[in-house]
Amino acid sequence: MFRDLLQRYQGTLLLGLVLILPLALMYWHGKPNRNTSPIEKVLMALTAPMQAVTRASLGSVGGVVDDYVLLTKTKRNNEELKRDNRLLLGEALKSRALQEELRRLKKLCDFKQGRKELDTVPAKVIGREVSQFFRVLRVRIDVDGIENLRPGLAVITHGGVVGRIEKVSGDWADVMLVTDSRSQAHASISGKGVVGTVKGKGRRKQFGVEFVHLDRAVRRTPIAPGDAVVTTGHDRVFPPGLEIGHVASGKSTQRGPYHEYTLTPAVAFATLEEVLIVTGYRAVVKDSDSLPAPEAARRKRVRVDPANTPDG
């Protein structure tokens, strides 16, 4: 009977339930200062995961939107970063150039400290000869008031011989490189006692050497590739002991009584930035040559003879 009644009024009951139940819930949940009810907990458990999932999905979609759609800010930031990057690259290049200059100057200073017998004046390379036929550097003298600056003075660097001054005008000077076809210097092969004359070939990285044919000496100590060729100081232009280059090949070309070898310069002329101009040097007298101790330390002042040019 009850079941029949329920079936008959099923709709009405359900309708009443869905209308009255919310009112009861509202009445119950509308009270102030109450704890979370079980119904609220169930509803939270039903809805919160959905919110979490959609939030996560929207987060990834939002990331895509931020990355690929809303690129206006990114573009602006990118342009600013590019500008900053250019500035910083310029600063870095400046810094690197300064570092390189410092390194070169330190080597020059070390060289100057190690060769105190040399009177030198620093100069800065400002240009190179544009002609194909000459190997000339143009330098600017950094020290003011150099009165004795004149053609014929040796120009060196910590690596070795660069050349000699060819022309002077004010603070400017043209330096004829040792590779120039007009250049000559008296030299010897270090440790082998073979002496000769180094002549430029006009090529950028090579010059020839003519050695006096000392058959016995050469036979005793044959010239080999890599042998260092240094100045003797006999030409009264270049101080002794400065490296000019290395023997490139052990093969020689005989011209009359002379043997000609090819050398590789000791100095990289292409990257040369600073040089030292030798205004004078003191020849160090070896201990074996001197008798008394004070005399052993005596240094003999040698004047560079500008007239002693290869032509002269």
Binding site: L25, M26, L43
Partner: peptide, 21 residues
């Protein structure tokens, strides 16, 4: 009614049952 209750679950600042009703 169930959807209203679910909305109540999303808006718990209001008393449960408001949106269902």
């Amino acid at each position: 009614f169930i959807i209203g209750l679910l909305k109540d679950g999303f808006c718990l600042a209001a008393p449960v049952g408001v949106f269902a009703e």
